[in-house]
Design a protein around this nucleic acid. Structure first.
Length: 114
DNA sequence: CGACTGACGCCGA
DNA sequence: CTCGGCGCCAGTC
């Protein structure tokens, strides 16, 4: 019910992350108006409808690590998709310093308010 | 109810 | 950089 709404909120926020950039679970939670609910973000991504375009692979841990176990199929797919966009992945992690998405305030207002 | 479980995060040693 | 420990919260059993 209400949780459904939260997930939708999270999915929409994730869609704001542009190609070639990444964001952390906590960052998405904050932007979605759900501070402290990073874990919920991970769950929401897992429940994301296949049809809906949600760039789940652009979401990483706060330290830039891919959340899946290194070598797992999911981790490999995420790595592949990121590299296709030009995001360098070394040792199952990305350098947030270089690729983290820093949302532009004006754009956020534009895309979330309307 | 309580216990356990995560696609998490932060802090201190 | 690695570990341990604790906080967090929606679901599940």
């Amino acid at each position: 019910m209400n949780s459904e709404h939260k997930y939708t909120r999270i999915w929409k926020t994730v869609q704001l992350v542009p190609p070639g950039k990444v964001a952390s679970y906590g960052q998405i939670a904050d932007l979605a108006g759900l501070p402290g609910r990073a874990r919920l973000v991970g769950k929401a991504l897992g429940y994301a409808p296949p049809g809906m375009q949600v760039p789940w692979y652009r979401i990483l841990r706060s330290n830039g690590q891919i959340a899946f176990p290194p070598g797992s199929e999911a981790a490999e797919e995420q790595k592949g998709r990121l590299q296709e966009e030009g995001v360098a992945v070394l040792n199952n992690r990305v350098r947030l310093k270089a690729f983290q998405w820093t949302p532009d305030l004006a754009e956020l207002l534009f895309r979330l308010e309307f």
